[in-house]
Every structure is written in C-alpha cells, then in structure tokens.
Simulated scan of single mutants.
Amino acid sequence: MPFNTVLTRKLGIRVPVVQGGMQWVGYAEMAAAVSNAGGLGIITALTQPSPEDLRKEIRKCKTMTKYPFGVNLTLLPAMVPPDYGAYAQVVLDEGIRIVETAGNSPGPIIKQLKQANPPCVILHKCTTIRHALSAVKLGVDFLSIDGFECAGHVGETDITNLILLSRARQTMPVPFIASGGFADGQGLAAALSLGAEGINMGTRFMCTVEAPIHNSIKQAIVDADETDTELVLRRWKNTSRLFKNKVTEQATKIERESTTGKFEEVAPYVSGKRGREVFINGDKDFGVWTAGQVIGLIHDIPTCEELISRIETEAIQTLSKASSLIVDKQPEPDIAGKPMGDMSANPSSDHNKKVPGEAQIYDIGKSKL
C-alpha cells in the first residue's frame, strides 16, 4: 500500500524511507537494493576515490535498478579537500537529480546542483534549526533533520529528535524528513505524526544482507545495546557518535587526559582507513566506525526488501491503531484492580526498589534522624 507524502510524490518512491549516505557502505549494490525495495537508495560520492570512479559507480547502479536513486555529497574539513565541484558535475552529467548534501559551507555545491536543467532535488542534512534555516535560504527542497541519536557527526547541541522534529514542524518553510534513531515502522509512524514527510536510516541499513560489510560487524550490531556507542572528538568541536570498542576507549582516554589538546595525539585512533578495514576484515575493535543509538533496536539481518516491507506494514498498523483510539463516545471507566500476583498487565511500580549503586534520596541522612 503506497504512502502519499511530499517525499514520495517528489522522489517517485513507494515508501518514505531514505538510505542515508554512509562512508564505505553507500555503494551501487546498497543503493540499488533499497530503491528496488521501494525506498530511496543513495550512493556515497566520497566512497569513490575520484569523480570518474563515481561515474562508474552511478552507471553500475543504473544497471541494477530501474527506480530512482540519489548521491550523497558530504563536505567536511580536510587537509586536502576533495574536488567537490568535480564530483557534483559527474552527478549532473550522469543525469542524477536527487542529491543528499551535508557538512560545512554547502552553498557553492547547492548552487551548482540547482543550476542544472532540470535542477536537482536536494535533501540537506542538519543537526540544528539554525543551520536548517540557513540551508532553506540556499534553496534546498527537503531538510533531513538529524537528531543527537544519530551515527557519525551529531553536532554540538545535543538535541534529540523528539524536540528537533517538533521545532522543525513549527519553523521550517520547506518539508523535512527525520534522521537518527529510526529502524522500524513504529518510528516511521512517529516521524510522520511529528510532521516529517519520511525517515532517513543509516545504521539500520548497515545491518541488511545487501550491505557491503563483513557479517561479523552486522552481528555486532545485532548483539549491541543502545548504550554501546561513544561520543568522540567533542574537545575539537567535531563530535562523532561511534560504535563503542577498544579504539574508541583509547581515543576518549586521550581526549580526556591530554594536557596539550593537540589533535595529532588522537588522530591515529580515529583514522578512517582503519574504519574501512573494520568493514572488510570483520574485527569490530580494529578501528573506529559509526553507529547510532538505534543499534539497540536492531535484532536481525534482513534483506532490504524484507526490511522495507516490514517497515511499511508496521507503520500502517501503527497509524491505524492510533486512529482507532479516537472514538465517538468516551467508554465507561474500568477502575477495578487485578488480583494480587497477576503480572499479565500493568505491573506495579518499582519506584521504591533500590538499584545497586544508585543513590536513594530518601535514604540520605536516615541514620541521623
């Protein structure tokens, strides 16, 4: 059953789910699998070593899907910045008209993409309302509102999606999608209810059959809890959410204890090259790699087709259930309690239960009374 949102109408997709750009993951196989399943697949431009390699990857993807797909262009600080303009030109030359942008000072690239005939549909990823409003002035078509739960660059404001999405609904003059913390149809239904036109998922798509990463890493995601991520590089205003492992522990220790504050001390531990090797060799502790708090919601490794179909079904069921809560007449109250020992529903509160290692306010100073 197709959805009808601004996102699905604009992009020509069946389900309002976008596979976000992911370094070392967003190859043609990944993008095609998502697009074939009814969402929007995205090739990550800078996963390709040169603009011409990106051209080959785009052409490869075209042979694997007849459905729309896009390209991600992320602009980040670098000692030797890539030729972003050349990458963007390849996107245009190959007829791609859906681009996800992110990062610093995207104005020149957005202008280049918008001058095409026809102009590109641009989804720009932001972690703050202030940056989102700046992107609107540049002419973006959609904003991808990226909450603090997300993988990778989380920004420096620590605002979660429950607040960010509502603020976007209140202030944004253009449509937006929700990014960070989404893995299922209940999440999609929640995002739509908060005013979004769809969702963007990264970590959830890493844990699919088609994701081009070692199965041991996928299993590590399945086995992880929502607490198994680490914020790194906050000291240098480049905060990133990474999978918690031995390398992130070393990096955070240096970040916390360094007396010089020189980035060179931590640089070897946050190397992207080592992160790429993780996906190839399957050793989750070999280097740093991005993962969102949503890892706590991921419990299997489905195909993209199975995942998106499941999300579609769950979202429809959730929205229908929510709609059924509205009735013509308020029902009679049912205030009868359950028999003692019946734990089938409404278990008693455990607010009086002491948790080991947790201070109980009402215990403090008791011995002095």
Rank of each mutant, 00 (worst) to 15 (best):
G195Q: 08
Y84Q: 10
I96T: 05
E332S: 11
M1K: 08
S349H: 10
M172Y: 15
F205G: 00
I199M: 05
L297C: 02
R130I: 05
T44E: 09
E265V: 06
V154R: 09
V34K: 09
D300F: 12
Q170N: 08
I159W: 04
T160H: 15
T259C: 07
T290N: 13
R256Q: 12
Y67A: 15
T157K: 06
E314K: 04
F205P: 03
R241A: 09
I110A: 07
S320A: 13
A190R: 03
R204G: 04
T239R: 01
A220M: 01
T313I: 12
A168K: 02
E306F: 13
A315P: 04
P331L: 05
A189K: 09
L123R: 02
G292W: 05
A45F: 13
K366N: 04
K244R: 15
L162D: 10
I301P: 02
K329Y: 12
E57F: 13
P16D: 12
P212Y: 15
A102G: 11
T157G: 00
V17S: 10
G139C: 03
A31F: 13
Q23H: 13
D328W: 00
V6P: 00
N245V: 13
T259Q: 13
E358C: 04
A322I: 11
A251G: 03
F279I: 01
L7F: 15
T313N: 12
L164R: 00
T101Q: 04
Q330I: 11
I159D: 03
T65F: 05
S105C: 10
S323G: 01
Q219M: 11
L307R: 06
P51I: 01
A251I: 11
C304M: 11
H214C: 06
T74F: 14
E210D: 08
P82G: 03
G202K: 06
I335P: 00
L188R: 05
R130P: 00
D223H: 09
Y27F: 15
I335R: 07
S324L: 04
A211W: 01
D146F: 14
G337Y: 12
T290I: 07
P356E: 14
Q23G: 07
A33P: 03
T8A: 01
D228L: 02
S309W: 01
Q250E: 11
K246S: 15
W24N: 05
R169I: 01
E210Y: 12
S344T: 15
E57Y: 13
S367I: 03
H124Q: 02
N4K: 14
I177G: 09
A183H: 10
G202A: 13
A224Q: 10
E226K: 05
D300I: 01
I280L: 15
G195E: 00
V288G: 10
K368N: 14
H299V: 00
I145P: 06
S166M: 15
